[in-house]
């Protein structure tokens, strides 16, 4: 079960895997996520579904190697199987009735933004895409975005590729150029989604963001993924992960996001040592 069929690096720390998961592939929609465990004693890791192939019974996941959990996942190769994989969880991104949309992706968030952009394109919507990265080496999925976008802006923090600057700069230029978007869909680091939401608020453009908080079960049980949205407590796993960016309390989400930073750092160092030992 859950065999890894393909595995390719997209850049130095971002990896794409295609996994056999017929039940999940049958139901998956853009915006939904899965929870996986690499091995018997692994943490539960939530990952948004990057693509799916219903006939082949496979789903695509794209992950960034950031902590002990993703390192353990990355130790698996083609032919190995994930210990657990459950989904599709969360609500699908709502695309119905959207005719012109700007999709904004940041870093590895582009992996999640792509299926949404693809679905919009497939339903005949005009898609403009703004994708941002720290530098040239980290750029991923450029061709895939180009294939479905009428406009594509690539931004890098250091200007080593595309235009130098933030995604908000490009987005604001597009809006000021007279593009009337039904919606902006922003997926990336919290701080990016916060500033995209601030930018679009000025212009009164509805903005949906995909939240990726800490969670354990992903089915509404732990409440660890709670967010304040429009003054109400929401669970990202069952009420989201998509929320109205103009209503999300990003500052609170940013604070909650670093709850285990220290522990994670220790774990990462411990795993690094472990993996080095195995290599030797």
């Amino acid at each position: 079960m859950f065999e890894i069929l393909e595995k390719d690096p997209l850049n130095a720390t971002v990896v794409r895997i295609v996994v056999s998961a017929p039940l999940i592939a049958r139901k998956a929609e853009p915006g939904q996520f899965v929870i996986l465990r690499a091995g018997e004693n692994s943490e539960r890791i939530p990952l948004t579904i990057a693509d799916y192939h219903r006939a082949a019974g496979t789903i695509t996941l794209i992950y960034q190697i950031v902590g002990a959990g993703t390192m353990e996942l990355n130790a698996l190769n083609c032919g190995d199987s994930l210990r657990d994989l459950v989904g599709p969880l969360g609500r699908a991104t709502e695309t119905e009735g959207l005719a012109k949309v700007c999709v904004v992706g940041g870093g590895v968030g582009c992996a999640i933004a792509l299926p949404v952009a693809k679905k919009l394109h497939a339903q005949g919507a005009i898609v403009h895409s703004v994708i941002g990265f720290r530098n040239r080496e980290l750029v991923i999925l450029e061709d895939e975005f180009r294939a479905i976008s009428e406009e594509l802006r690539i931004m890098t923090d250091d200007g080593s590729y595309g235009e130098k600057g933030l995604v908000t700069t490009a987005l604001e230029t597009l809006i000021q150029a007279g593009n009337q978007y039904d919606e902006v869909i922003a997926i990336g680091p919290l701080i990016m989604m916060k500033f995209v939401s601030q930018t679009t608020k000025k212009y009164g453009v509805k903005t949906m963001v995909s939240m990726n908080p800490i969670m354990v079960d992903g089915t509404g049980m732990c409440g660890g993924c709670r967010l304040t949205v429009g003054g109400e407590t929401k669970f990202a796993c069952v009420d989201g992960p998509d929320f109205d960016g103009h209503l999300v309390d990003f500052d609170e989400a940013l604070r909650r996001g670093d709850m285990y930073r220290e522990t994670e750092q220790h774990a990462r160092e411990a795993s690094c040592n472990l993996f080095q030992q195995e290599v030797r």
Partner: peptide, 19 residues
Amino acid sequence: ESLKGVYSANEYLTRINLM
């Protein structure tokens, strides 16, 4: 209730017992 260090009992117990 959204401060870091506030858990539902479900989350606290799940982390300890299940995980």
